[in-house]
């Protein structure tokens, strides 16, 4: 098991370092794309700034709480943005048949598919998220304890894995639909723009969907709400890591069903 992990890690390191090297050789490209991501995220931050210029709180969350939520969401999706970027081109690799190469390697197909690409431009959004997070942190009214810090880290991991699971399942739709850009856009451009706000402001049906169907609630709202609005660590805090593990498992399952389906058509 450990040996296997090392084996995968060696391959991954080799491929990504090469990838980064070749990307870095297009310096203008790299700078422009990092700037693009910065612009995108800064404009999101500025929207909050403009909004809170007018109103004192949104759904009961004040400015800094909102920023903290925003930053936490950014941090939770950063690993997917950086390491799972190839999901965006899955549909074309399925349609044009390049995905077939993943079937010829004695490796996990998802690992192999993702392993040769790192999205460096998302470092731009990571930077903004870190900045927002750190900026908001000292203004929170939280009585910190060591346990809370540990729980926050655990919940963060849960959030990360929830998001990986969701994105994997969403991307794997390409195996059934072929071109799934609209599905990807639906989630990343529409839904994910809203789930970084306090969940309670949305109607009941949406809340139910975001908790039970597509558990976006656990990507940011749940953990941050626990931290900010419950005085002490309670069992509910541990729901996020559990959900993370489960959703990640489901995501991988959908992926492997997708690959099986691909093997059924082999387009």
């Amino acid at each position: 098991m450990v040996k296997r992990l090392f084996y995968y890690w060696r391959i991954y390191r080799k491929l990504t370092s090469q990838h980064i090297k070749s990307r870095m050789s297009f310096r203008a490209d790299f700078l422009i794309s990092v700037l693009g991501m910065l612009a995108l995220n800064v404009s999101g931050f500025l929207s909050l700034l403009v909004l809170f210029n007018t109103i004192p709180s949104l759904g009961g969350w004040d400015y800094y709480e909102m920023l903290f939520l925003y930053g936490f969401f950014g941090l939770a999706i950063a690993p997917v943005a950086i390491l799972f970027d190839k999901f965006w081109s899955l549909w074309s690799d399925v349609i044009w048949g390049n995905f077939i190469n993943c079937c010829f390697k004695p490796l996990n197909t998802m690992f192999y598919y993702l392993s040769d690409t790192v999205d460096l431009k998302s470092l731009g959004s990571l930077a903004v998220s870190v900045a927002v997070f750190v900026y908001a942190l000292p203004h929170l009214r939280v009585s910190w304890t060591a346990l809370k810090v540990v729980c926050l880290v655990l919940m963060y991991l849960g959030s990360v894995f929830s998001f990986i699971g969701i994105r994997t399942a969403v991307s794997a739709t390409a195996f059934w639909m072929g071109r799934n850009v609209s599905v990807m856009n639906f989630f990343s451009l529409k839904v994910e723009q809203f789930v970084r706000y306090p969940l309670t402001i949305f109607g009941k049906p949406f809340q139910i969907v975001f908790v039970f169907v597509i558990p976006y609630a656990f990507v940011a709202y749940m953990p941050v709400n626990h931290l900010l609005h419950s005085p002490d660590v309670s069992p509910e805090w541990f729901l996020t890591p559990l959900v993370g593990a489960a959703v990640f498992g489901i995501g991988c399952l959908v992926w492997s069903l997708g690959v099986r389906r691909y093997n059924g058509t082999g387009t």
Binding site: F26, G36, M37, A39, V42, K121
Partner: peptide, 13 residues
């Protein structure tokens, strides 16, 4: 990469 970057900047701005 650069078209994606420019597109992001453009749309966001």
């Amino acid at each position: 990469e650069s078209v994606l970057g420019l597109k992001l900047i453009k749309d966001a701005v």
